[in-house]
Design a protein around this nucleic acid. Structure first.
Length: 563
DNA sequence: GCCGTTTTCGGCCCGACTGTTTTCAGTCG
């Protein structure tokens, strides 16, 4: 990005490509260097002499001189500033050169003072847009996209669980509820030696700062910027604590009211008889597990994902909770990108990776023509890719590779690929990638028109939002659901961590309308298939059952559910 | 800085949109 600011040609793209190549490696670069040296690095496609030497320098000295000298020339928070919508490296450089702006807060001040509008290339509108962008960013501050920090959370939990003196360790809070973004990490553990657990926890390599450490509770900041809490409990109150710390707030308030009506008091230590609780400090039986607590209150156990006090307590009382779609139940993935466009891996590599995590089929859905930056496929290339897929299919067994595309829906609802070619594909997804700020009416009409095309099987990421980055475009979701029902179009839950589009309330409406869902990873590399489980979580939060989803069945059955 | 059965030098995906212009630069995907 620093190079881009200085308008160095081609190098930025080369570094970007190299970074993508490293990310999509099966092994750690360090390992590769250790075993094969410089030569092994150069063998990685996208990495040549120059970058290989820089990697070597980094492994040996933990720094790269060229990078540091660049950074000195332009001492600017580039990644922060460019995370503002509409601001790229060029503008950031100009802001630095002309106004000396290095940080987001300096930029905010300058924009508020009206200093930007006089800059060449900027105007009043760009000033407003920048301020809006900063506000959107700050709204999300302090929260983390669950999917992006999931590996780290899991590794901390796994390490705790592996300790011989820890019987159990569970995340609570928004992580257990599988919210899209999470504020901090709450861990509850059972151990007979809480002191030892505390000592271990605060000295974990992931921890950067210890706020406090007592006999059964510790509070730390992790290196990734997130705060984490650990509480060690007795087995007898674990269920109550898990329930209490899982939330959400509204669910818990309503649950406590139910407890009061039944003559109980519910808190994080247990479920107590109200009268006895004042004199007797003993726990009511049944605080060991959440199931027992809910049962005592006359309720079915409620999955954490739907604890929002939006009808789940009533349903649990009547024994009418939905049978939520199960984790690990997906058999296929309907949105997969490859290196034919903006993916990092080949068709074959993607197929093998999908097979490895237990999928039975994938649909290759590279971008089409008008998404030019990604090298979007035109009709000719699509036909060529179909031949390639047939070829790869012969080399890979145990997984079916279906043919598809992520077709752009143009401004007026037409598609950028001819119907004749689309008709040859197994699965066609339509997606909006341009004209995000049409009026709600125009945007809705545009997508509805695309659904009316008999070749469009699925609408990918139907609202276009990017969590912490971009608002959804204006669209009448009810009208989309209605049109989907009428045209038999499937709506997607895009499981990519910062998309999760549709969102939970939308999914509930889709389910109620009897429209089918697909849960796709939107994989751009072999590692992204793991995001599918995040999509399942999203579906669960939207009360979706197995029957509402199409890619939890074998591909032949799945295909029959399409138009 | 990378890459090569069109090249070891000379290429390097590009179209739409926005806001700034009055013919274009920057950003996004």
């Amino acid at each position: 990005m620093l190079l881009e600011m200085k308008e160095v040609p081609f190098k930025p793209r080369a570094y970007e490509k190299a970074a993508l190549a490293i990310e999509s490696l099966e092994k750690d670069v360090k390992e590769i260097y250790k075993t094969g040296g410089l030569k092994a690095l150069i063998d990685i496609p996208g990495i040549g002499q120059g970058i290989a030497e820089k990697i070597e320098e980094f492994i040996k000295t933990k720094r790269v001189k060229d990078f540091e000298s660049l950074k000195r020339q332009v001492p600017v928070d580039v990644s922060g500033l460019t995370s503002i919508e509409g601001l790229g490296p060029k503008s950031v450089y100009k802001l630095y050169k002309k106004l000396g702006i290095k940080t987001i807060s300096q930029l905010e001040k300058a924009a508020k003072a009206g200093k930007l509008r006089d800059l060449e290339g900027f105007g009043q509108k760009s000033e407003e847009k920048i301020l809006k962008g900063i506000e959107f960013l700050s709204l999300n501050q302090g929260r983390f996209v669950l999917g992006f920090i999931w590996p780290e959370i899991n590794s901390i939990l796994e390490k705790l669980r592996a300790l011989p003196y820890v019987e159990r360790a569970e995340p609570a809070g928004s992580i257990r509820r599988m919210q899209e973004t999470v504020g901090d990490l709450d861990i509850l553990a059972i151990s007979r030696e809480p002191g030892k657990v505390m000592d271990y926890f605060v000295s974990m390599p992931e921890v950067s700062h210890v706020y406090g450490k007592g006999p059964t509770k510790a509070n730390v900041r992790l290196k990734n910027g997130m705060d984490a809490d650990l509480r060690v409990l007795e087995p007898g109150s674990f269920g109550a604590a898990l329930q209490y710390f899982t939330g959400d707030k509204y669910h818990n308030i309503a649950l406590r009211e139910i407890a009061i009506k039944k003559g109980y008091k519910l808190n994080e230590y247990g479920l107590f008889r109200s009268l006895a609780s004042r004199s007797l400090r003993s726990k009511a039986s049944g605080a060991r597990t959440e199931e027992k607590i809910y049962k005592k209150l006359g309720l079915e156990w409620i999955p954490p994902e739907i604890r929002t006090n939006s009808g789940e307590l009533e349903a649990a009382k009547e024994g009418k909770l939905p049978k939520l779609i199960e984790y690990g139940s997906l058999k296929g993935d309907l949105q997969v990108q490859t290196n034919w466009t903006d993916g990092a891996n080949s068709i074959k590599e993607m197929a093998e990776a999908a097979k490895k995590i237990g999928l039975e089929y994938i649909v290759i859905t590279d971008h089409t023509r008008s998404l030019a930056m990604t090298g979007g496929l035109d009709e000719k290339k699509l036909l060529k890719q179909m031949i390639e897929i047939d070829k790869v299919q012969k080399q890979v067994s145990g997984i079916k590779i279906l043919k598809g595309a992520e077709v752009n829906i143009l401004k007026d609802g037409r598609l950028d690929i001819s119907d004749e070619v689309l008709a040859k594909l197994d699965v066609v997804g339509g997606a909006v990638h341009s004209n995000f700020n049409l009026s709600e009416k125009e945007q809705t009409q545009r997508i509805v028109r695309a659904m009316e095309n008999p070749n469009i099987d699925v609408i990918f990421h139907p609202t276009g939002r990017i969590i912490q980055k971009r608002e959804p475009y204006k669209v009448d979701i009810e009208a989309l659901i209605k049109a989907a029902k009428k045209t038999k179009t499937v709506l997607e839950i895009d499981a990519y961590p910062n998309r999760l589009d549709l969102k939970d309330q939308h999914i509930r409406k889709v389910v109620e309308a009897g429209v089918k869902l697909a849960i796709d990873s939107d994989s751009h590399s072999i590692f992204h298939f793991q995001y599918l489980e995040l999509g399942v979580a999203q579906a669960r939060r939207g009360w979706a059952e197995a029957k509402d989803v199409i890619n939890n069945r074998p591909y032949k059955e799945m295909l029959k559910l399409l138009k």
